[in-house]
Amino acid sequence: MSEVELWIALILGIMMLSSAVLALVVKNHLAAVAAASVVSLGLALLFALMRAPDVAMTEAAVGAGLSSLILALALRRLGLWQIDSGSENSNLLSASSKGKDDA
Protein backbone atom coordinates (compact mmCIF):
# COMPACT_ATOMS: atom_id res chain seq x y z
CA MET A 1 0.00 0.00 0.00
CA SER A 2 2.75 2.38 0.91
CA GLU A 3 4.41 1.62 -2.41
CA VAL A 4 1.23 2.55 -4.27
CA GLU A 5 0.82 5.69 -2.20
CA LEU A 6 4.35 6.68 -3.06
CA TRP A 7 3.79 6.34 -6.78
CA ILE A 8 0.49 8.22 -6.65
CA ALA A 9 2.11 10.99 -4.63
CA LEU A 10 5.03 11.14 -7.05
CA ILE A 11 2.81 11.55 -10.11
CA LEU A 12 0.61 14.08 -8.35
CA GLY A 13 3.63 16.02 -7.12
CA ILE A 14 5.07 16.24 -10.62
CA MET A 15 1.69 17.31 -11.94
CA MET A 16 1.16 19.99 -9.31
CA LEU A 17 4.62 21.48 -9.40
CA SER A 18 4.83 21.63 -13.18
CA SER A 19 1.40 23.16 -13.56
CA ALA A 20 2.18 25.64 -10.77
CA VAL A 21 5.21 26.79 -12.74
CA LEU A 22 3.11 26.80 -15.89
CA ALA A 23 0.45 28.96 -14.25
CA LEU A 24 3.06 31.63 -13.61
CA VAL A 25 4.99 31.59 -16.87
CA VAL A 26 2.38 30.95 -19.53
CA LYS A 27 1.52 34.04 -21.52
CA ASN A 28 -2.23 33.68 -21.77
CA HIS A 29 -4.20 34.43 -18.63
CA LEU A 30 -6.94 31.92 -19.31
CA ALA A 31 -4.40 29.14 -19.68
CA ALA A 32 -2.92 30.29 -16.40
CA VAL A 33 -6.31 29.93 -14.72
CA ALA A 34 -6.66 26.43 -16.17
CA ALA A 35 -3.20 25.50 -14.88
CA ALA A 36 -4.01 26.87 -11.43
CA SER A 37 -7.15 24.76 -11.36
CA VAL A 38 -4.99 21.73 -12.14
CA VAL A 39 -2.91 22.56 -9.06
CA SER A 40 -5.93 22.51 -6.79
CA LEU A 41 -7.17 19.36 -8.51
CA GLY A 42 -4.01 17.50 -7.63
CA LEU A 43 -4.23 18.98 -4.16
CA ALA A 44 -7.70 17.51 -3.68
CA LEU A 45 -6.48 14.05 -4.68
CA LEU A 46 -3.49 14.40 -2.38
CA PHE A 47 -5.78 15.38 0.52
CA ALA A 48 -7.85 12.27 -0.16
CA LEU A 49 -4.64 10.24 -0.11
CA MET A 50 -3.79 11.80 3.25
CA ARG A 51 -7.08 10.48 4.71
CA ALA A 52 -8.69 13.89 4.85
CA PRO A 53 -11.92 13.50 2.88
CA ASP A 54 -13.47 16.62 4.39
CA VAL A 55 -10.62 18.79 3.28
CA ALA A 56 -10.48 17.04 -0.08
CA MET A 57 -14.14 17.79 -0.62
CA THR A 58 -13.73 21.43 0.33
CA GLU A 59 -10.74 21.77 -1.93
CA ALA A 60 -12.64 20.08 -4.76
CA ALA A 61 -15.64 22.34 -4.35
CA VAL A 62 -13.66 25.52 -3.86
CA GLY A 63 -10.62 24.90 -6.01
CA ALA A 64 -12.20 23.21 -8.97
CA GLY A 65 -15.52 24.98 -9.09
CA LEU A 66 -15.61 28.26 -7.28
CA SER A 67 -12.05 29.45 -7.76
CA SER A 68 -11.99 28.95 -11.50
CA LEU A 69 -15.48 30.44 -11.65
CA ILE A 70 -14.33 33.60 -9.85
CA LEU A 71 -11.12 33.89 -11.83
CA ALA A 72 -12.82 33.32 -15.16
CA LEU A 73 -15.50 35.92 -14.39
CA ALA A 74 -12.79 38.33 -13.33
CA LEU A 75 -10.89 37.72 -16.56
CA ARG A 76 -14.01 38.52 -18.50
CA ARG A 77 -14.50 41.75 -16.63
CA LEU A 78 -10.84 42.65 -16.78
CA GLY A 79 -10.89 42.28 -20.53
CA LEU A 80 -8.09 39.77 -20.47
CA TRP A 81 -10.12 36.97 -21.95
CA GLN A 82 -8.78 37.16 -25.46
CA ILE A 83 -7.33 33.97 -26.82
CA ASP A 84 -4.58 35.84 -28.61
CA SER A 85 -4.24 38.95 -26.54
CA GLY A 86 -1.56 41.00 -28.15
CA SER A 87 -0.80 43.85 -25.79
CA GLU A 88 -1.79 42.29 -22.50
CA ASN A 89 0.75 39.54 -22.67
CA SER A 90 2.87 39.28 -19.64
CA ASN A 91 5.49 36.84 -18.69
CA LEU A 92 6.83 36.13 -15.28
CA LEU A 93 10.39 37.05 -16.06
CA SER A 94 9.72 40.06 -18.21
CA ALA A 95 9.76 42.55 -15.36
CA SER A 96 13.24 43.76 -16.13
CA SER A 97 12.96 43.69 -19.90
CA LYS A 98 10.89 46.79 -20.04
CA GLY A 99 11.16 47.32 -23.75
CA LYS A 100 9.42 44.05 -24.42
CA ASP A 101 6.52 44.99 -22.20
CA ASP A 102 6.08 48.37 -23.69
CA ALA A 103 6.21 47.16 -27.24
Binding site: L24, S40, L80, S90, L92
Partner: peptide, 14 residues
Protein backbone atom coordinates in the same frame (compact mmCIF):
# COMPACT_ATOMS: atom_id res chain seq x y z
CA UNK B 1 8.69 38.30 -9.60
CA UNK B 2 5.48 38.65 -11.56
CA UNK B 3 4.97 41.79 -13.53
CA UNK B 4 1.22 41.52 -13.80
CA UNK B 5 -1.17 41.91 -10.92
CA UNK B 6 -3.44 39.05 -11.99
CA UNK B 7 -0.49 36.69 -11.86
CA UNK B 8 0.12 37.87 -8.33
CA UNK B 9 -3.34 36.67 -7.33
CA UNK B 10 -2.70 33.31 -8.98
CA UNK B 11 0.64 33.05 -7.22
CA UNK B 12 -1.04 33.75 -3.89
CA UNK B 13 -3.55 30.98 -4.59
CA UNK B 14 -0.72 28.56 -5.31
Amino acid sequence: LSSHLFRMVLALVI
